[in-house]
Amino acid sequence: MKNTPNFNKSFTDSRALKSIFLSTITVLCAVGACIPLFSVLVMLIMRGGKRLSFELFYALPPTAFDTGGGFGNAIVGTLFMVGIAALIAVPFGILAAIYLAEFGENGKLAEIARFCAKTMTGIPSILAGVLAYAAVVMVTGTYSAIAGGVALSILMIPTIMLTAEESIKMVPSAMREAAVGMGCTKTQVMWKVMLPVAMPGMITGVMLAVARVSGETAPLLFTALFSDYWIFQGGAGDIMEPTASLAVLIYNFSGMPFENQIELAWAASLVLVTMVFIINIISRMLFQKKK
């Protein structure tokens, strides 16, 4: 009797069983992770969609026992504060990124600044609110859209900076060399050759940062607070007044014992998530097209 090795497939030996077992668990994990997403989406469409109407977008939030109402002022407030944040964070992030990617020449300052930016991405969003509270609310003595915008900008800066740096670094170095060889100053190399090529990537980064902060609640809770009124009244906006936002509205209304308010919270969530998803998807398409 020769002792020949057995090459046949077997589904019963312990190695095969273990493999099948582990594969099953992984599949379950992956499917399990998708369930919450679908559940959230289904609930948003069912409960939020039920309430969806034109009134939501122009009416003011209802008082306790009111019926109807909407959150027009919160949509405007969110857009306005995200706008302020972008106004601060986009120039800051991109200029710093240009230094990190190019002018810093991988020196000490660039390295430390990059590390600081990475550390900042990990700062809890509520602490951005605490900072804006100390730096703006306590100084000006009032909750305001400015304070909310500053808080959000703290969250946007590192994201924009790191993605912009990444996209500048992705510009082929051959192109950079060509520009240097033509006799461009460093600034001309950057503006004429590198930035146009890096632009889609940088826009993607900005859009993702915008999408992220539009849903932020914690930094607004005690900087912009909330308001039942429009930020623009009689043509003039008052940016030094408490300002409504979709996210804070969802939070406030979710804890109320009134069915009308809870329905509005779902509808506001649907609007917010739709906004965020649209920005996300557009920015991803932009990025993929470039790649």
């Binding site: 051959a174 192109m175 060399e177 060509a178 520009a179 006799g183």
Partner: peptide, 13 residues
């Protein structure tokens, strides 16, 4: 004043 052509063709985008 001294132009250069590189190993890899590197036109601008």
């Amino acid at each position: 004043h001294i132009g250069m052509v590189f190993q890899q063709p590197n036109p601008f985008s």
